[in-house]
Amino acid sequence: MSNLSNPDVSHPVGSWVAAWIAAPQLPSTGFTPNWSQQGFTRQSVRQVVRVSAPGQDVRIRLSHAYGTAPLRITGATVARSAGGAAVAPGSVRRLTFDGARSVEIPARGGAASDAARLPLAKGESVTVTLYFEGTTGPATFHAQGFTDTYRAEGDALDSVSGAEFLDRTESWYYLSGVDVSGGPGADAGAVALFGDSITDGFGSTPGADRRWSDALAERVARPVLNAGIGGNLVLNDSAWYGERGTARFARDVLDQPGVATAVVLQGLNDIGFSEAHAQGYDRPTFHPAPVVDARQLVEGHRELIRQARARGVRVVGATLLPLKGSDHWGPRAAGVVAEVNRWIRTSGEYDAYVDLDKALGAKGDPARIAGRYDSGDALHPNDAGYVRMAEELAEVL
């Protein structure tokens, strides 16, 4: 891509590594209000993300995976975050796409910006601001960001104070990746965490960057990427929770720049949705809810392993967390979880495994998540639980 019209670019650009990602989802209702179904018209959207690798140059990647008509991005900027919607003075960089300040993305397509020179430290938060002069239609997004995204009327691309950004949600829109180049520590390759709401960060403190991925990034020298989607299933598509894991794994993990290791923690929803449905939790979120046995789930994991091996990516299996006492639990679910975890531990089919079930289980009742790690629903860890998970995984990596 040409960089000729952008004075903030650097030359030449080395190889890119993903420093932050979000898995795209179909526009839909979520647990908290979002703007995905209404989209944007003559509005700016400012999104704050935390990069897990340092670099001298930065670029963004945008996904229009679920769009049905071309999407026009009128302008885009990247800057260092100064908290909330504010940015650090002097850090705003106008982004270009093939040398132009606007880009049209075809339906179901994507785009990457040209490089911009913005030295970033590992763990630093950056803002990405997009301006839409026209009407976007429903927006490809990531539902559960657990951090604030801001909206302003009109063109606020260059706003430093962020005062124009009066509206907020906790979702990300169109932004699917932030890549860096020219920084140390990426030679070993990025680690991508693949899974459902536990990977996405449900139960962690919103706005505090305390997901499993954040805790791991603080403990390893490699970039760490979060490819979780809350509610995602290994074997079935969901209108709420994304394409099935076996279908989205290549896009959301294997295609990411610089990925060398994938960690798979997924299957509790495949097991637990039917259990919740049988107990009378008849919510639209618990569909589809077929009864899934251990053999079927193991085959789903084997498909993920095959895909990773075909791309030369090391793949680590994580045992499913304790779920006793949650709305996903019952005698049948308990049996399937135990069988799947036994396979992960003993089959040798994963390149390595991390035993999160054992690490988070309560003493005297290992089928239940320990109280000190429980966010309150007997299913999702709290901040301390995510730290414990990261400690265990860091030993395996």
Rank of each mutant, 00 (worst) to 15 (best):
residue 393 L to G: 01
residue 295 R to V: 15
residue 56 Q to I: 02
residue 213 S to E: 08
residue 150 Y to I: 00
residue 190 A to S: 07
residue 59 R to Y: 05
residue 342 R to A: 10
residue 326 S to N: 08
residue 131 Y to H: 15
residue 121 A to P: 07
residue 363 K to N: 09
residue 378 A to K: 06
residue 160 V to P: 06
residue 135 T to R: 15
residue 212 W to M: 07
residue 206 P to M: 13
residue 106 P to A: 11
residue 314 R to C: 08
residue 279 Q to I: 00
residue 46 R to C: 08
residue 209 D to A: 14
residue 19 A to K: 02
residue 11 H to A: 14
residue 226 N to E: 00
residue 185 G to T: 09
residue 176 S to N: 07
residue 262 A to Q: 05
residue 135 T to P: 09
residue 234 V to S: 14
residue 93 R to C: 09
residue 31 F to Y: 14
residue 49 V to L: 13
residue 18 A to G: 01
residue 391 E to W: 00
residue 211 R to M: 05
residue 56 Q to E: 13
residue 198 I to W: 00
residue 280 G to Q: 11
residue 210 R to K: 12
residue 19 A to Y: 01
residue 367 A to F: 09
residue 260 A to P: 02
residue 81 S to K: 10
residue 25 Q to H: 06
residue 208 A to P: 00
residue 351 D to H: 07
residue 277 H to W: 15
residue 149 T to Y: 04
residue 44 S to I: 04
residue 54 P to S: 15
residue 314 R to K: 13
residue 181 S to Y: 06
residue 340 V to R: 04
residue 217 A to P: 03
residue 364 G to P: 09
residue 375 S to L: 02
residue 384 A to C: 03
residue 26 L to G: 01
residue 246 T to M: 11
residue 21 I to M: 05
residue 269 N to H: 09
residue 30 G to H: 10
residue 224 V to E: 06
residue 122 K to Y: 04
residue 41 T to R: 13
residue 332 R to I: 09
residue 244 R to C: 11
residue 27 P to C: 11
residue 86 A to Q: 07
residue 148 D to Y: 12
residue 107 A to W: 09
residue 126 V to N: 06
residue 261 T to Y: 05
residue 233 L to M: 14
residue 195 G to T: 03
residue 82 A to E: 00
residue 331 P to S: 11
residue 79 A to G: 10
residue 122 K to F: 04
residue 26 L to N: 01
residue 93 R to Y: 08
residue 221 A to I: 05
residue 135 T to N: 14
residue 36 S to F: 01
residue 248 R to Q: 01
residue 305 I to C: 14
residue 248 R to M: 02
residue 343 W to D: 13
residue 16 W to V: 11
residue 208 A to K: 11
residue 275 E to F: 03
residue 232 N to Q: 13
residue 268 L to C: 12
residue 363 K to S: 14
residue 181 S to C: 05
residue 75 G to R: 08
residue 393 L to W: 03
residue 255 D to M: 06
residue 97 F to C: 08
residue 261 T to S: 08
residue 272 G to H: 07
residue 234 V to L: 15
residue 327 D to M: 14
residue 240 W to A: 12
residue 91 S to H: 08
residue 92 V to Y: 13
residue 57 D to Q: 14
residue 265 L to Q: 15
residue 64 H to M: 02
residue 369 I to L: 13
residue 368 R to N: 12
residue 127 T to F: 02
residue 152 A to E: 08
residue 310 A to S: 14
residue 75 G to A: 13
residue 92 V to I: 15
residue 142 H to F: 00
residue 127 T to R: 00
residue 328 H to S: 01
residue 300 G to H: 01
residue 129 T to V: 05
residue 83 G to F: 10
residue 323 L to H: 10
residue 251 R to W: 03
residue 166 L to A: 15
residue 230 G to W: 02
residue 90 G to R: 00
residue 244 R to S: 12
residue 377 D to H: 07
residue 84 G to C: 03
residue 322 P to L: 03
residue 364 G to M: 04
residue 277 H to M: 14
residue 57 D to L: 09
residue 294 A to I: 01
residue 230 G to T: 04
residue 322 P to C: 08
residue 204 S to D: 02
residue 283 R to K: 12
residue 368 R to S: 13
residue 358 K to D: 09
residue 239 A to K: 13
residue 281 Y to V: 12
residue 310 A to W: 06
residue 225 L to S: 09
residue 94 R to D: 13
residue 356 L to C: 08
residue 130 L to F: 12
residue 245 G to Y: 04
residue 214 D to M: 08
residue 322 P to Q: 05
residue 36 S to E: 07
residue 242 G to R: 12
residue 57 D to C: 05
residue 19 A to M: 05
residue 380 H to G: 07
residue 73 I to S: 08
